[in-house]
């Protein structure tokens, strides 16, 4: 089953392209990686921020993934004995739960949540960590800590 370009959002198109950019980089095909990076930038440049976006909307989408999206996909992957998809779903579901927890904690604590501590994201699986230093090995995908990066506050 192929994706339909005409039905994909700008960010979906960008995400397929950044994924292929990473694959080309790992194959040391620099020119092709650059082509996919350019495609991703083209689609990202088309995006318009939505006015009055709220954290609650974001949490609602995450809740829907956890309540329906992941269970339904897991069931299909299980029926197809598709271990690759099961792996991606397992990692993605865990990272999604951490994103929900991050947003819920931010809603309660506000800026205090990250006032005296760092926030980190694993570049492989999307694992999120709030603390002073990331774990030595990613608890979701088991990659070493050098692939878990700090996300800093920007001065405005």
């Amino acid at each position: 089953m192929d994706a339909d370009v005409r039905q994909m959002t700008w960010t979906e198109l960008a995400a397929v392209c950044t994924n292929l950019e990473k694959a080309c980089t790992k194959q040391l095909r620099g020119e092709e990686a650059t082509t996919f990076a350019k495609l991703a930038s083209f689609y990202e440049s088309r995006r318009e921020p939505q006015a009055d976006a709220k954290i609650e909307e974001l949490v609602a989408l995450i809740d829907a993934d956890l309540a329906e999206g992941y269970p339904s996909a897991n069931e299909a992957a299980q029926a197809a004995e598709d271990r690759g998809s099961k792996r991606a779903l397992l990692w993605g579901e865990k990272a999604t739960k951490l994103l929900k927890s991050l947003l819920v904690r931010y809603e309660k604590q506000g800026a205090k949540l990250t006032e005296e501590t760092g926030v980190f994201v694993c570049e492989i699986c999307g694992f999120v960590y709030v603390g002073s230093a990331p774990p030595e090995v990613c608890p979701i995908c088991k990659v070493p800590a050098f692939k878990i990066h700090p996300v800093r506050k920007e001065a405005i």
Binding site: L20, D82, V121, G126, F127
Partner: peptide, 18 residues
């Protein structure tokens, strides 16, 4: 994080390599 999770989903749905 959402982008990384999405990329992985694309990877497993047939778009793993160029």
């Amino acid at each position: 994080s959402s982008r990384i999770i999405a990329e992985d989903l694309w990877r497993e749905s047939g778009y793993i390599i160029a």
